[in-house]
Write a protein that binds this DNA or RNA. Structure first.
Lengths: 323, 323
DNA sequence: ATGGATATGCTATATGTGAGCATAAGCAAT
DNA sequence: ATTGCTTATGCTCACATATAGCATATCCAT
């Protein structure tokens, strides 16, 4: 990128620009994210560069994802642009990443690419079997310690509020606040990245210990943060746009639809109410075909009705709680 | 920005990076956006550059907005990163803009900066006095002409669907789809920018005429598109985060709160139901003071209760329709 | 046949929303 | 003082929607 000069005389930062992709698919009941191997051996989100002949950022993304992995991306959405200094400790210049979310149907990974479990990265986000026990047993206590560690009462107060909002005790857990939670854990020094990222600055990392098992699998650089942003955004979008269907084949059973929604939302849903929502919302139409391998009563196969977006202003699958 | 080389041998595009700000305040009942004068004489969104010593993009934004206009930004949110080629016809390199939304309380503009009416840019978005009459009289017919202008029936079908979704006939008008609407008008050649932007390519601009009055005031470059993105995002956010209060002084009457919400949402609200929402949602608390200059019964002054974000998962002001 | 699993329908209750009526309390002109 | 207009505020009814169950249908494996 060109070095620009500001009229005030200071030199604009030279920067490296990247496009990052959080490519998601749901296999069985597991939401997965495509990763590649980074120089430091950790998994990382795939990235690519912008070329002169890429007319738009979206097209650039589709091009290099196709080149690298052979995947044809369907649904694509810009997530966020990350540009803090020190994101990549090996680079001398600032690295700017424009991150994208993409949804695809299950496909085999190619080359060094690998699908990993999204909840392997963010284990506290999976509430399908109820609240993860380690939340109360280990995570919240560790956060408490961090809250109390600040000498200033006002700061403690702010920390406590943030924890309460993100990890919701009094109100309830808000599935969308994935990034808030990750950032708190990072600040509290409860994920390995905190150590790594602050090594340069020499700022002290709180020593609050948290068992490795509950810290989740880290990614290279700040990529777990990007993955958290993506999960939060996707969960939000589910409720007002019919994006789930991008992850499903042309026909599917209602149970399968529910599984995929549950995988992304990270909660178990009340089946009967979910079905009512789906049918009354006219998201799908029956095909008359039936699935035989259900292990129970055969389920009808449905297909998505794209017309819903014409019929209702903000068609999304509300999430009827509980199993 | 550094010129990068990809392993495939192609040269990465040199690019210029900017930060753009959509700075919003509501004066009386008018939502306003801060503009500066661009080289071509048109108003433009203020922009600034990233410096080495800006640790984060947010900080960079706050720094140069402060330097340029003296404004201290409170609420700031990253909107979108725009990077299509040809955004700035005068630049040889691609210009990347990371756009931000910022909310401030009414403040005088400094230097060449000027506050302009947001609905001067997007007149079809203001439904506070009911549906703008020119929508049915001029805008929709012009869009119809554009829809029918495509020789391919499948394309016509897609165009019609997009128009129906964005300008909602059967379902209803969705206030959030501001960008969809602006983009359609652009594609249909119904805003002056379309002419300007496509001059270079030589692609034909549809000749569908639309009275200048209904095209809205254009901004320099693609800044009206950014302003549209901002309005849509803000309208969405209103419904699930208490951001309105960033635009209000410490105490305010419920009527004032309603005015500001109406100004942003672009609709008139049912006062009684709005009050019910606000009070039952515990967004505010009374101060016991009363406004005397109402021209009617004195109104109590209220203050925002920041605790709501602790009490409820997604506290926002639903929009009870109609006046 | 029996039990377990899945699919699917139905309903009682609570809650939320839209729309309107009614009253309270100020000001201004008569 | 009375009347009428304005804004503020309280209340209610009807209707839509969501929550949480119960109940039944239909298959498979034993």
């Amino acid at each position: 990128m060109d070095v620009e000069r500001r009229s005030t005389g200071s030199v604009a930062a030279p920067a490296t620009l990247r496009l990052n992709a959080v490519i998601v698919s749901v296999v069985d009941t597991t939401p997965r994210v495509l990763t590649v191997r980074h120089a430091d051996g950790r998994p990382a989100l795939p990235y690519g560069l912008l070329r002169d002949d890429d007319r738009t950022l979206d097209r650039a993304l589709r091009r290099w994802v196709g080149e690298q992995s052979g995947l044809e991306l369907g649904y694509v959405e810009q997530l966020y642009t990350f540009g803090d200094v020190g994101r990549d400790p090996d680079e001398t210049a600032r690295t700017l990443s424009v991150a994208y979310l993409a949804l695809v149907q299950p496909t085999a990974a190619r080359g060094d690419a690998e699908w990993i479990d999204w909840y392997g990265l963010l284990p506290w986000e999976d509430w399908r079997a109820g609240a993860p026990p380690f939340l109360d047993a280990a995570l919240r206590p560790a956060l408490e310690t961090w809250v109390d560690a600040d000498p200033d009462p006002a700061c403690r107060r702010r920390r406590r509020d943030r924890v309460d909002i993100a990890f919701g005790v009094d109100p309830e857990w808000d599935g969308v606040r994935v990034l808030d939670r990750y950032e708190l854990l990072w600040e509290a020094g409860l994920v390995p990245e905190a150590q790594r990222d602050r090594g340069a600055d020499g700022a002290p990392v709180p020593s609050t210990a948290l068992d490795r098992r509950w810290q989740g699998e880290p990614l290279a650089l700040d990529h777990r943060r990007i993955a958290a942003t993506a999960l939060g955004r996707l969960r939000g979008k589910l409720t007002y746009r019919p994006v789930v269907f991008e992850l499903l084949p042309r026909t599917f059973t209602l149970r399968r639809l529910q599984q995929v929604v549950e995988a992304l939302a990270g909660v178990s849903l009340h089946t009967q109410n979910f079905r009512r929502l789906v049918e009354r919302g006219r998201f799908v139409e029956g095909t008359g075909e039936f699935e035989e391998q259900t292990g129970g009563r055969p389920a009808e196969r449905f297909r998505f009705r794209p017309e819903v977006v014409l019929e209702r202003p903000r068609p999304g699958l509300g999430l009827p709680r509980r199993s």
